[in-house]
Design a protein around this nucleic acid. Sequence first.
DNA 1: AGCACA
Length: 325
Amino acid sequence: MDPRSRGFTPAQSYPGRPYDYDPLPYPTPPSVGTIHSLPPAPPALDSPGYHSYLHHHSNAPPLVLHHGNPEQQKIKTLFISGLPDDVKAREIHNLFRHHRGFSSCQLKYTGRGNEVVAFAMFINHQSAIAALGALNGTIFDPETRAVIHIELARSNSRKRPRGGAAYWIIDKRTKFHKEATEEWSDEGDGGSDEPSGTENDSPSNKRALAASRSVESESKSKRANGQAARHLEKASGDIPPCSTLFIANLGPTCTEAELKEVLSKYAGFHTLKMRGRGGMPVAFADFQDVESSTAVMNALQSTSLESSDRGGLHIEYARSKMRKN
DNA sequence: AGCACA
């Protein structure tokens, strides 16, 4: 049976990695903030309600288009980073498949360490932008809090594979590295397999698709073997959970009031302090406990404010807790 | 990649 055609629910297909449509289930007891009720459970991935659910619950900001650049308006491809290194091409496909105008995607092992990125192709710029807005900052794996980052690709991928495959894989890893990481079935077709435009698609596609299936059970057992714990530790850059957050990538015009307005919607928020670091402001936000700071970090990661000019917020746990005076 | 206040 072709796995792309079978119906599924997230629970069936993603044991241990359910899709996360909404940042966090608001675990904090209501205290200072205004969020009190738990949201309803997300609809099944294939249900009709899913798409609008995503729209209303996405942590992405209302879309602000700063595209003064006409070149960018020709881009129909999204670039996705921040993926866990055991991500499957099929997962990328399922992430985008219900979005209007989506055509196909590719997963690319860059060969730089275990880095893996993806490209998602759309029929036009508008639909690419819409999916970007809806999915940027999605928590891809709640277990490790992996947050994906989506931007317009620098160039369009030239074509989709022959035979209409919905997704395919490009593997730039060396043979040595492949064997060192996992038993990836051989894909050495010796040709150039650039992300955008490959003329050698059909045979390598089939092999890549077969490979992506064959690897799955193995990576499940790896996960069970305690690899998940290793991911968890480095989930927020080796900084231990802290009730104070460090917020960077603020636009130069960002004000304390602007940031405070969004933070104060969340339960457990206490204090905000901004520092201007050579034009680039950063902020420290203190919360009641690590549960509330974690919830807010997950909820607001990568979201843009009106003042944002270089992408969304970058939020980490602060290295030390804010002093209380 | 950028982490202050005491």
